[in-house]
Design a binder for these strands. Structure first.
Lengths: 346, 346
DNA sequence: CTGAAAGCGCTTACAG
DNA sequence: CTGAAAGCGCTTACAG
């Protein structure tokens, strides 16, 4: 491999001059600069990243910790992960993927204390997340997408799910809905104490109660046991038939419910409004006119990268920072007033 | 940070002894070993990875090049990417994600010539893939999942799609099918010359022709224009009604077709057998009894990692190596003989 | 505006 | 079985 010495020799300057030409940390005569650059081009010189890193400079690598679980929602994974990677790269950093469900903390510590990585992004945060609790031992700044209990050692950024819950309840109430169904997310998220499902659910139920709105919450939802036909049948059999369905369920489950509603000749949004909160859709495949409050992974991932890079490059102390993003309410004109005759039918 | 000097001093040995204790490249007395290890534990010493790498050792990083496209199939992406990462990690390497649709080659070169990465895995290969064509310039061994034209500079590993195509045709023929429908994959894959769609399609059509089986191929399939109802209607309206549907389509599209078949009261597999070749399903959500010839990303990803690590660790020259994996035929008992009265109906 | 030299934290001949 | 020392390819005070 051709090194900095070869370049210096061929250009007839000192090694330090070559280094300064590359870093721009010294004023160099334009003749010297062009001479050096020519030689670099000619020899195809690439600075050895490992030597640069060892000198204490940055590694220009950000590690992304994402527990790879068998039961993970791959669409959701892709959205957050890919978006984050995209922003990390466009900020001039490489992305190192730390998976490891079990040795996650050890892995993060290793690459941090190693100087392999300049910073860490934590994805898929649980309420009591060990990666957040140990964030003081990483030796590098750390930022989480999510809302863990322990936020003293890392920055956290998330959608404001409390606001989202209130918003959903208020919106339906304002339109005149008084009885609404709530379709739960996959049960594992509650078991795992993922903060977003819990914050949203609590906020929604609380505001609904304040408003005097009746909420019929579904039972636990799991892929292999959930029966959409039965669910829809039960809803329609209620004495007080709900006029809206608020879903926190994942897209696949919600899709099966939409199909079941269609089969039961319940039309959306004429008979029942469907409001999906924070679910990902492959929009082209979603035929029913549902409304959604989207998660906007794009906005989140930009922000999380910006915060981390500020800490890396400017030494800003981001520990304890909490940033909540307002969910945008997107109404495709399909959350409507409840139809009175549908109400009476029940 | 505590360095190797601190450990040496605290343990009362030389720096080189500490290094050899860690590397195991020298026989050391057990007393010295335990003394050194104790100190390492006590001080929490972690070798500086950048210094280790600079000394010419390996970086223990494998870079994974995956063009992140807006239109990518995220399920498929996840399957290959996550599986590959899993195997890379369990082999003791970290995974660096190189996305970049445009500067992919530059990125790979950089991390290769840099010594940042020890090797490269190329995912999502096209027939004329620039990343494969330039693989001689990476300075590190390279292996691709896929089947590019230019295979001189990297190892390639793929499912044997030709065999898969023959298998699918032969299987249906043996069961007695004489008229079958073929549902194309998303058009972009043909436009992009992804080898798997082309190899499969050609092989299937060729064997079908040899056997004298009639194949009705669908028109181009795209998310925003494909109309499953219309497609099913057209199929049922054919003079010679097909008794089997071979699908290379992605799961979402195939799902809509299954729904449309159900709505048209065409029962699977009684009226029509459905054979999905290499599509990913979220199996729990797939109600219809279809059969599939799966892609087995697991087997592929293990193999690709093994080959690359052999090159990295043993210096094996893997350029030009081509390994084809036999697709496994999975029949859930749902590719059946054509029903004669359904045939007569047409 | 530029150069000679120290040193980053390791590994590995070289020497015993 | 162990140590003293050279050197990996850079960056950055130090000096002019």
């Amino acid at each position: 491999m051709t090194g900095i010495k070869d370049v210096a020799q061929a250009a007839g300057v000192s090694v330090s001059t070559v280094s300064y030409v590359l870093s721009g940390k010294r004023t160099i005569s334009s003749q010297t600069i062009s001479k050096v650059m020519d030689v670099i081009d000619e020899l195809g010189y690439v600075p050895n990243a490992n030597a640069q890193r060892m000198r204490g400079g940055r590694s220009q690598i950000i590690s992304i910790s994402e527990p790879i679980r068998k039961d993970m929602n791959q669409i959701e994974f892709s959205s957050y992960f890919l978006q984050t990677v995209k922003h990390v790269k466009s900020a001039g950093y490489d992305a190192l993927l730390l998976s490891g469900e079990h040795e996650a903390v050890d892995d993060i510590r290793r690459v941090g204390n190693n100087n392999l990585a300049d910073g860490v992004i934590l994805l898929d945060i649980e309420t009591d997340d060990i990666r957040a609790r140990r964030a003081d031992s990483y030796g590098k700044p750390c930022v989480a997408i999510g809302y863990p209990q322990e936020r003293r050692y890392c920055a956290c950024i998330d959608i404001d799910f409390v606001h989202m819950g209130h918003m959903a309840a208020q919106r339906l109430f304002d339109l005149g809905h008084r009885v609404v169904a709530a379709l739960r997310d996959l049960e594992m998220h509650y078991v795992r104490q993922s903060s977003y499902v819990i914050l949203f659910r609590d906020a929604f139920l609380q505001r609904a109660e304040e408003l005097g709105m009746t909420v019929m919450e579904s039972g636990p939802v799991e892929y292999d046991t959930f029966d959409p036909q039965q669910y829809v049948e039960d809803l329609l059999g209620e004495k007080q038939r709900p006029t809206a369905l608020v879903s926190q369920a994942d897209a696949a489950i919600l899709n099966t419910v939409l199909d079941a509603l269609a089969l039961a000749n319940v039309s959306i949004p004429d008979d029942i409004s469907v409001l999906s909160c924070g679910t990902y859709f492959e929009a082209e495949l979603m035929k029913a006119p549902i409304s959604e409050i989207p998660l906007e992974p794009e906005g989140l991932c930009t922000k999380v990268t910006d915060i981390l890079i500020d800490a890396i490059e400017n030494g800003t102390d981001i520990r304890g920072v909490l940033e909540l993003i307002e969910p945008k309410y997107v109404d495709r004109g399909s959350v409507s007033k409840p139809r009175s005759d549908f109400l009476r039918q029940s």
